[in-house]
Amino acid sequence: MTPANPFEQRYRRRQRARRREALLWSGVLVLALLASARMSEVSPSALLAGLPRACQYFANLVPDLRWRQLADGPQTEGSVAYWFYRIDIWLWLLLQTSQMAALATLLGAALAMLLCFPASANLAPNRATYLVFRRLLELFRSVPDLVYALILVWAFGVGPLAGILAIALHTVGALGKLFAEAVENAEMGAWDGVRAAGGTWAQAVRYAILPQVAPNFLSYVLLRFEINVRGATVIGFVGAGGIGQELYTVISFSYYQEISAIVVLIIVTVSLIDVLSERLRSLAMGMVLR
């Protein structure tokens, strides 16, 4: 049966084409899923065996808290203080972790500030410089900080220094790209003015571009700091300092209560830093509007 209405006919043809396309894409998706399940040895039986064990594991993490003893001292089982019995050491390690992230962000931002101006299309003296610096930033950015940490632990020894440098190296690339994009969006009138008045390239960068992009830069640096705090909590897994080393130990020995205590502390610290840096960011953005 064919409807006489040409509109109806066209509608049906489109409907059929869309259905065909949807079928094709779902076929591709299913094939890709099957292929990757095979590749990563995920099967229904493996999941059936693994998921209950995972649930059991996470159930073990739930702290043993008892209502009657909740507010008692660290000697009584079931109290919050008992759960967090090493809180002084953990807080100190968290402070160390956040300071590692701060120093690494500062270091990375300083280097990125040097590299971003030649890496922006509107300021680079020629196209070759622009391309070279852009590729350089890409190279810094695309290696994960943990890989840097693995290598730097060999060169600098176990400890925070390797972690700081590893995070800083990744930060250079990540921030450099964002900085360069901010610079490319800057108003060029001030630049032309400084250049026309006889200013050098460096002076024009300092007096024409930097004041425009500084609030943007600051906001990117703070965002990166939040990301780096998260990164710094795990960089200790490979021996590069911070709370990660302690976390690695307690997970390896399956000290369930300690694991949940440290994870709770990490989540609280990270959220606090997020809130703080968001405040600072809106403050930095307010400076532009004023």
Binding site: A49, G50, R53, A54, Q56, Y57, F58, L146, T233, V234, F237, L247, Y248, I251, S252, S254, I259, V263, I266
Partner: peptide, 11 residues
């Protein structure tokens, strides 16, 4: 990575 370490211990 914390999840990964935990899941390695679990499964």
């Amino acid at each position: 990575l914390i999840w990964a370490l935990a899941f390695v211990r679990a499964v």
